[in-house]
């Protein structure tokens, strides 16, 4: 792993209702190239808000987010250009129901990267093969299982050749028997050196794949460490309490 900082977060705050709700209350973080940062924490602790702030699906009330050194909270920065570099995988997949799987995957590369259709489709097919869905290219999202949809959502994001992938509870909406197939794809990606920020309740995944685990509570980072240390030797009472409940 090198020391290339990809994302740098400074004093990030997100308040709702004029400050009555502090979803994020001052977060500082650096995410380096090739890191898999796993974010855990109780419901309502601000995990989703933090992740969605990273590509400005939520607009921070205060603070700065630097991607490749550019402050995307600066209104003059071309946000769409930066979002292209950050893939996002949602809990509910958000595939486009009116397009085939191939259409879902090639839309953005063709329209935004100006990739020739042939080339985009070839790339999409290769990715589909890799996640074992090469035979579903012509299917529509409605014809797939949840696990298949999520694997498609992951490779759709990969088609933009992103520098980092953001996952917001990618397996929470899945039937238990489908969780494994999605986690396997994510593990593959991690092995290939993809930079990932993953919000999840899958502690096994955090332990096995995470290069760093961040524990959030009340909109703040309470504790962070390598998974081994964090899970076996939690320092703060909040984390001890949380781990006692989920493990």
């Amino acid at each position: 792993m090198n020391d290339n900082v990809l994302i740098k977060v400074e004093g990030l705050k997100k308040h709702y209702k004029g400050g009555a709700i502090k979803a994020l209350d001052g977060i500082d973080m650096e995410i380096r190239q090739g890191e898999v940062v796993v974010i855990i924490g109780p419901s309502g602790s601000g995990k989703s808000t933090f992740l969605r702030s990273l590509n400005l699906l939520e607009y921070p009330t205060e603070g700065h987010i630097y991607i490749d050194g550019a402050d995307i909270t600066n209104p003059k920065v071309n946000l769409n250009r930066h979002r292209q570099k950050m893939g996002m995988v949602f809990q509910h997949f958000n595939l486009f129901p009116h397009m085939t799987i191939l259409g879902n995957m090639t839309l953005a590369p063709i329209k935004l990267l100006k990739m020739p259709k042939k080339e985009a489709e070839q790339m999409a097919m290769e990715l589909l093969e890799r996640v074992g869905l090469g035979d579903r290219a012509a299917a529509y999202p409605g014809q797939l299982s949840g696990g298949q949809k999520q694997r498609i959502a992951i490779v759709r994001a990969l088609c933009m050749k992103p520098e980092v992938l953001l996952f917001d509870e990618p397996t929470s909406a899945l039937d238990p028997e489908m969780v494994g197939e999605v986690l396997d794809v994510m593990k593959e990606l991690a092995k290939d050196g993809m930079t990932m920020v993953v919000v999840t309740h899958e502690m096994g995944f955090a332990r096995e794949v995470g290069s760093r685990v961040v524990f959030m509570a009340d909109g703040m980072v309470v504790e962070e460490n390598d998974p081994q240390t964090l899970f076996t030797n939690p320092q703060s009472p909040r984390l001890q309490d949380f781990l006692a409940k989920v493990l």
């Binding site: 958000n94 953005a108 935004l112």
Partner: peptide, 13 residues
């Protein structure tokens, strides 16, 4: 669904 907008925006549209 708002997720459709978010998926589009997160791709860079």
């Amino acid at each position: 669904d708002n997720g459709q907008f978010e998926a589009g925006r997160s791709l860079g549209f």
